[in-house]
Design a protein around this nucleic acid. Sequence first.
DNA 1: ACATAAATACCGACTGGTTGGTACTTATAG
DNA 2: CTATAAGTACCAACCAGTCGGTATTTATGT
Lengths: 212, 212
Amino acid sequence: MPRPTKHDPERGDARTRLLEAARDIVRAQGFAATSVDQLCRAAGVTKGAFFHHFASKEALGVAAAEYWAETTGALFAAAPYHDHADPLDRVLGYVDFRREIIAGGIEEFTCLVGTMTQEAYASHPAIREACAASIFDHAATLEPDIAAAMKARGIAGDWTAASLAAHMQVVLQGAFILAKAAGGPAVAIDSVDHLKRYLTLLFQTPSKGRTT
Amino acid sequence: MPRPTKHDPERGDARTRLLEAARDIVRAQGFAATSVDQLCRAAGVTKGAFFHHFASKEALGVAAAEYWAETTGALFAAAPYHDHADPLDRVLGYVDFRREIIAGGIEEFTCLVGTMTQEAYASHPAIREACAASIFDHAATLEPDIAAAMKARGIAGDWTAASLAAHMQVVLQGAFILAKAAGGPAVAIDSVDHLKRYLTLLFQTPSKGRTT
DNA sequence: ACATAAATACCGACTGGTTGGTACTTATAG
DNA sequence: CTATAAGTACCAACCAGTCGGTATTTATGT
């Protein structure tokens, strides 16, 4: 969507700057602890501009989750793991890609929508919904490759491609929490390695791997 | 009634009531969104009592994390999964135990320290530390059984008992987030099943399960 | 081409309520 | 009597959100 502004074309328009400020600050402090004034200061805009673009702080939260879904969606769509011929290699390549991002640094790899979900799930239904959409839509992009890998190897356990895609997100979100607790990405990387090991074992064995 | 103040031994002392209120409210709303007044109202005490027992809101956060570590520690110490003779059965029994708790209901199974970690890791180092201690001390209780199971089955992959114990916590924490996002525990249960399947596969195969 | 009208984007002082925290007082237990 | 526990009143800072106004862009009529 075109967003015309000649006022400050260098840094983008106020709306985008606010969204980017929200992405950075909310990831570090959480949604509730981030004030509108703080966001305005960081984005270099005034309160008037904030409430011109967003009806409320909650509306910004929803928009931030949507912006997150857009930008990360583009990042993963352009990632190189899609190039593998074997669907299982694409799935494992996704895990490697996430691992590389985590190894980058703690401020850059944590997930906005995972953080906001925890705070907003009971008190801000609109934000929760936007975060859920971001997480599950992203998980859905993995489903076709998982399903193809299952079919190619004749795997038919008591689990679905959707549940495995969700499990992969579970491991990533959990890894972020323990990384934050530990104060470094080492735990997260180990956990992603466990995830990759699970995927390898799952698609190696023709066994059903029953649970109960 | 001009002198309604009579020590109420039925409900416990003010400090414990505040800690319990914090446990319930912070889990639902997050730490920053929970005000001191709200906690006092819920605990049935006044602000004077609050600041008599806690030097600051942050100090309450630390105490709440410690209280959480104590109470959940006792819960897991008394759980029946320790009774199995085989160490691997004890580890799998732990997963079953967590699964049962999750099936109970969304308000009761989410983790206080996981929620607080996300908000406090950058802005409240003391809380982060207390949360980290709670998580990693709990993970450490699983380590001996994992190590024993590894030894008993001659497993020697490129992973440690500590990293697997941490990975189990990762899955649980991540499962809570996706459950909150989805608005129900179904995803979390599926993910815990995947974790159990991973453990079963890991200890079934004598393979090294190399990753890279 | 040009005047004008209508949106849109943005500004910043202001408001009423809430926040974490303080000061002082009062009650209870040993 | 003294220490601890709890209650009451209050504060300055901060909070989300408002409002009247200005600057810039776009659409329209002639």
